[in-house]
Each structure stands twice: as structure tokens, then as C-alpha cells.
């Protein structure tokens, strides 16, 4: 047998609530993050991501508090991201119960954050998220929630991040995010081909077939999505059965007796 492919619901959290936007805009309130996390755990999600989209410092404490509650309630791994700028910030959420941290803008501004975090906590818990958008014939890395073009080439950045000690890369395609027309397979494959760490496809899932495409042609090790799960357009059980039928290795979930 073999390592299974992962299905990862992503929860964007603003002031303690899960929200969902399109192309990083027009945020809508969706649910309580803990209720949703438990529901996804029971439905067979392989992992969860919580992304703190709040900017203010006081809301950061609400978020860390939420991380603690999530850790107490669920028994699958979860990653925490959003606003982590220093090794101290990272330590705080890991101590609160997160398994991995996702860093994005802060790593672009200070690449050493990746190596410092990897040295202290192990590279397996350092996830680099790349927000990429096609500009002419290449993909540029965007930061600050997709608002600022760094001019940095996404493929080169992925390779550099791997060398610095990133343990996983989330490839988030800004062009396809929220459109529900499928993941950006070209971008995903381009990055998967040049690094030897797991790749998570993100941005654009609208149907079960899109997940299969990302995990097969897109060469992703995991596929991440938000709204199709939050709005119950795709049921995780049904999705995993569908993927299994296509011979994609998928974890079987046994009933939780505890």
C-alpha cells in the first residue's frame, strides 16, 4: 500500500468566526470554527487548515484561544496560518496545539524565518503558502492577502523555500480561487516538478472531478478547499468514495468511538 492523498478543508477565521470570500474579497460569515472542525473531522477530512485573516493584535488572542479549543476537540492534524511573523508567533500557535504553521508574506519579506522555524521546530511543521498569479508568461508571488505583486517568480521561490527548510508547500492560485472552475493544474505541476516536498493544491475546487484532477494530473499530494465544504456542495464522504473509485489512495475512516 502507500501514502494516501489528503483532503483538507480550509477555514478562514475572522474575529473567531469562519468566513469565505471570492478572490480574497467580499467576506461572508459562515460558522463557528470549532463546530465546523468537529464536523469535518467526523466526516473524514484528513487534515484542517485555519487561517487567521484578522489584522489586529487583540483579535490574535481570540485566534490563539480558538486554536487551543480546536486542539482539545479534534484528533486529526491541523495547520495554522495568517499573521505569523516571528519564531515567537510560531511557537505560540504550536504551543496552543497546532501541528504545523503556514507562513506566507512574512517568509517572502524574511526568508530566514523558514530556516529559523525549521531548525527550532523541525521542517515537517513549516508550511510555505505561495499565493501566485499569472503575469505574462510566468507566475508571480503575491503577498498581503493577494494585494501586492512581489515580482518574485513562484517556481524559483518554491525551490528556494525547500532549500531553506520548508516541509510542505501550499500552492494557492489567485486566478482560480473562488471561481469553482478547477485548480490551476499547470501552476501546481510546475512547482511539484521542481521540489521534493509535499504539495497542496489550493484555489478553485468546484466539483469532485476537480479534486481528482489536482491529485492526478496536478501532481498534488493533497487538495485544499473551503466553500464547497462550508456550503455543503461537496460531501467529504462522497468525495473520498469518488476518488477511491479512480484508484487514488485515500484513507478509510473508521467510526470514532471516543
Amino acid at each position: 500500500m502507500t501514502l494516501t492523498k489528503r483532503i483538507i478543508p480550509c477555514l478562514d477565521v475572522d474575529k473567531g468566526r469562519v468566513v469565505k470570500g471570492r478572490k480574497f474579497k467580499d467576506l461572508q460569515d459562515v460558522a463557528n470554527p470549532i463546530t465546523l472542525a468537529k464536523k469535518y473531522d467526523e466526516a473524514g477530512a484528513d487534515e484542517l487548515v485555519f487561517y487567521d485573516i484578522t489584522a489586529s493584535n487583540e483579535a490574535r488572542d481570540i485566534f490563539v484561544d480558538m486554536v487551543e479549543k480546536v486542539a482539545a476537540e479534534i484528533s486529526i492534524p491541523f495547520t495554522v496560518g495568517g499573521g505569523l511573523r516571528t519564531v515567537n508567533d510560531i511557537q505560540k500557535v504550536l504551543r496552543a496545539g497546532a501541528d504545523k504553521v503556514s507562513i506566507n508574506s512574512a517568509a517572502v519579506k524574511n526568508p530566514q524565518l523558514i530556516s529559523d522555524a525549521a531548525a527550532k521546530f523541525g521542517r515537517q511543521c513549516v508550511v510555505l503558502a505561495i499565493d501566485a498569479k499569472q503575469i505574462a508568461n510566468s507566475w508571480h508571488v503575491f503577498i498581503n492577502g493577494g494585494r501586492v505583486d512581489t515580482g518574485l517568480d513562484a517556481i524559483t521561490w518554491a525551490q528556494k523555500a525547500e532549500k531553506l527548510g520548508a516541509g510542505e508547500i501550499v500552492v494557492n492560485a489567485i486566478d482560480t480561487d473562488g471561481e469553482k472552475n478547477g485548480y490551476n493544474l499547470d501552476l501546481n505541476r510546475a512547482i511539484a516538478d521542481v521540489v521534493n516536498i509535499p504539495i497542496v493544491a489550493s484555489g478553485g475546487a468546484g466539483s469532485m472531478q476537480h479534486f481528482a484532477e489536482a491529485l492526478l494530473g496536478g501532481k498534488a499530494d493533497a487538495a485544499l478547499a473551503a466553500s464547497v465544504f462550508h456550503y455543503e456542495e461537496i460531501d467529504i464522504h462522497a468525495l473520498k468514495a469518488f476518488l477511491r473509485q479512480q484508484d487514488i489512495p485515500i484513507r478509510e475512516v473508521t467510526a470514532n468511538e471516543f
Binding site: L3, K5, D46, G167, N196, I197, P198, D221, A222, R251
Partner: peptide, 8 residues
Amino acid sequence: KVPHMGWN
């Protein structure tokens, strides 16, 4: 791929 990450 290293790390070995996921359900096996």
C-alpha cells in the same frame, strides 16, 4: 518526497 507527511 521528504518529509513523509500524511496517512499511511
